[in-house]
Amino acid sequence: MILPKFANIKIQFSLKKQNINLFNTLDTTTTILNSARNTILTESKSIANLTEYLTEDFAKATEIIYKSKGRLVITGIGKSAIIAQKIVATLNSTGTPSVFLHAAEAVHGDLGMVLPDDVIICISKSGNSPEIKVLVPLLKRFGNILIGMTADLNSFLGKESHYVLHAYVESEACPNNLAPTNSTTAQLVLGDALAVALMELRNFKSEDFAIYHPGGALGKKLLLRVKDMLDTTHTPQVAPNASIKEVIVEISEKRLGVTAVIEAGKVIGIITDGDIRRMLNTNDTFTHLQAKDIMTHNPKNIASSILVADALSILENNAITQLVVIDDGVYKGIVHLHDILKEGIV
């Protein structure tokens, strides 16, 4: 069939339009990715440059906070206030008691939270915002040590602070050089540097970290022990002379895919469902076999006091799914990989 001339023109126009849309899509994708790369590179450069602005003030401020008998009060306005809250959260979880004070609310009664022994950090990029100019003299009137975090050492905050953490950035990643981007990242990184330095001064260990993180997957990883999750009502066990049928029944009823072989109160071996399958592959009949004939001797075992995270490592390193739990020679039960995964350890 021969298409009319106008139909051919219409088809060609449609194909051309699709090609233009495709090119526009590709151009937009490239533009977006280039913008994202530029932002990441710009912020990473700003962070790297912070090392050049570290002075003795950082070390002295850190030592004062470390030796303080009070808390660390961190205040700010706008985006700096949001960064202040994150730094407070990090410090609290790493052993430095901290509270957030909103600069705008401080002059409306919240200054009452500041105690005589508290150390104060005030965060402001410009160091000259109206709220900061009102708040700083009030804070100093209480006689507390004031640590400023600002990009401008010659600002009101920079000059009025006892110590200054220099959060200088050349510009923002924002194309208009307006939205706080590089500057807030710099503040955040200085806060992290302060937290880590304090952790090292306190010799803060993972055990200490666990105390402040008892909930969630992290808390379980640091605190949960095998005895806390061990099901002592399902402790599969058979005697060495048990029939294979008895072994299969025990494994099936306890639903752990394994049973311990117990003699004189001691674990002398285990039989897994894998052992059963291998036995069936090599024997036409199993009526003459007993548990001791197919068991695995000297099975991997752990004490119930070890961390579940450590038990998981043993399972992974040995490519097995169950561990026998034994305390002082007494069989306590079986810990299974599936049970650990249900706890959300990983």
Score class of each variant (00 low, 15 high):
328 D>G: 06
167 A>G: 02
278 R>Q: 06
165 L>M: 01
54 L>Y: 10
240 P>K: 08
139 L>I: 11
130 P>T: 06
22 L>V: 08
207 E>V: 12
124 S>P: 05
198 L>S: 00
282 T>Q: 12
244 I>H: 00
250 E>R: 07
288 H>L: 10
173 A>Q: 00
295 M>V: 01
345 I>R: 05
318 N>Q: 04
16 K>C: 13
105 E>V: 01
116 P>F: 01
284 D>H: 13
141 R>Q: 14
335 V>L: 12
293 D>H: 14
244 I>G: 00
120 I>K: 04
306 I>A: 06
285 T>F: 14
129 S>T: 14
74 I>W: 03
9 I>Y: 15
169 V>M: 07
67 K>E: 12
324 V>F: 06
219 G>E: 03
275 D>V: 09
79 K>R: 01
33 L>V: 12
261 V>H: 01
321 T>H: 06
2 I>E: 13
87 I>A: 01
39 T>N: 15
140 K>N: 10
68 S>M: 01
84 A>F: 02
249 V>N: 12
140 K>A: 06
343 E>L: 13
3 L>G: 04
257 G>D: 01
6 F>W: 13
12 Q>N: 15
72 L>W: 01
170 E>D: 15
330 V>F: 11
276 I>A: 04
196 V>F: 13
172 E>D: 04
294 I>R: 00
42 T>V: 06
145 I>Q: 11
266 K>H: 11
87 I>V: 05
90 T>V: 00
271 I>T: 03
313 S>R: 15
259 T>L: 08
118 D>W: 02
122 C>N: 09
235 T>W: 10
241 N>F: 09
94 T>L: 03
318 N>A: 02
42 T>C: 12
253 E>I: 14
26 L>K: 11
100 F>C: 00
323 L>T: 06
77 I>L: 12
277 R>M: 03
131 E>A: 05
325 V>M: 02
332 K>D: 13
241 N>D: 13
49 N>R: 11
68 S>E: 07
53 Y>R: 11
221 K>V: 06
244 I>D: 00
204 F>I: 07
118 D>S: 04
212 Y>F: 14
63 E>Y: 15
114 V>C: 00
304 S>G: 04
121 I>V: 14
